[in-house]
Design a protein around this nucleic acid. Structure first.
Lengths: 184, 184
DNA sequence: TGGAACCTATCTACCACTAGATAGATAGGT
DNA sequence: ACCTATCTATCTAGTGGTAGATAGGTTCCA
């Protein structure tokens, strides 16, 4: 059996990816794990602390799965496939979109500390994407940056769209088309 | 002075665009308008009703501002500029992103009726975009559809990203680059 | 005088969070 | 080997506060 703290993180992540930070409660997590909400507070003192823990774990997992783009010299398709596959997996594994996209969209009512974590997720993703485009030497730095922004935005947007329609296919099509745009 | 019902819709829309459906309350709206929460219930019986009213008004305003793309024969830049300008305005007017993007991202915990309204917003936007691409006769229907999907997803994603960073510039850059991609 | 708009007062259910207790495991000293 | 102290993880019971919602009264204008 997994550690309780891990189970709490898992449950909170699932709920946050369903409806964001404001759509879950300690009680709901407790009920799901057949413990009391006080026990959830034992592991994570405040809701903000739990939210940050979930977001940080998600970010770390995501970045770890990305790896370092600079160390390879594969063709660009390889990176883009890899990147898109991660987003796709996130959605197809349990029908829930990327945590950080969801949280970013309610950033206006999020604790400051969580906004910082989200900004880090975004900037690290962009850095990775820009790095993976570095072997497109026919592009200027500025162009690479912009294309990275487009790719990231489009994937986040597509995932949200796909989750509303419960249709991972949309995500896949946008991803494929994006790949041809970036590798063309 | 505006009608109370309209003021309620305005306040609710602002709050929903800050943090989504779960991040505002009748009491909060009442306080902002210096009335009591019971009076808000007089105008909108349930939260779901208010949420739907806000979403439907937003959708209608947005679609009305879009107009009918088929009736013109302007170059493609015109449509895209027009479309992007709407998203941009939404963000720059009050620093808040598109309502429907935010709500879509918490669709997992939204009343069914609101999900339907959101799907309508999305499909009508895509129809409009596809229509505006119809004078790209060098593209197949399928290609036009995919490019419309990409454009829509990228703009929604970019807006969410921009709102997190309080930086409308990002939105603008993605929009411009997108335009060149569609008009190229 | 009747109805629209708003009120007071209240309800039930839930929220995040805390205090205090307890069972069970672990560790250290004698 | 036993005792003591501490730690972990959970509990019960409760805090003050807020959620959405409602019944019934007041005000005011046409």
């Amino acid at each position: 059996m997994k550690e309780t703290a891990t189970q709490i993180l898992d449950a909170a992540e699932a709920m946050m990816r369903d409806g964001g930070y404001h759509a879950f409660s300690f009680r709901e997590i407790a009920t799901k794990l057949s413990i009391k909400s006080a026990s959830v507070h034992y592991h994570f003192t405040t809701k903000e602390a739990l939210g940050n823990a979930v977001t940080q774990r998600y970010t770390n997992n995501f970045l770890a799965a990305l790896g370092e783009p600079q160390t390879h010299s594969d063709p660009i398709d390889h990176y883009i496939d890899h990147y898109i596959a991660l987003f796709r997996q996130s959605l197809e594994a349990d029908g829930r979109p990327c945590l950080c996209g969801i949280l970013a969209s309610e950033s206006g009512r999020l604790p400051e500390s969580m906004r910082d974590t989200l900004k880090e997720f975004n900037s690290k993703n962009l850095t990775w994407l820009e790095g993976s485009l570095s072997n497109r030497q026919d592009w200027t730095n500025h162009h690479r940056q912009e294309m990275a922004h487009i790719a990231f935005s489009a994937l986040e947007g597509a995932m949200i769209f796909a989750s509303l329609n419960q249709e991972a296919g949309h995500m896949v099509r946008v991803g494929d088309r994006l790949k041809t745009l970036l590798a063309a």
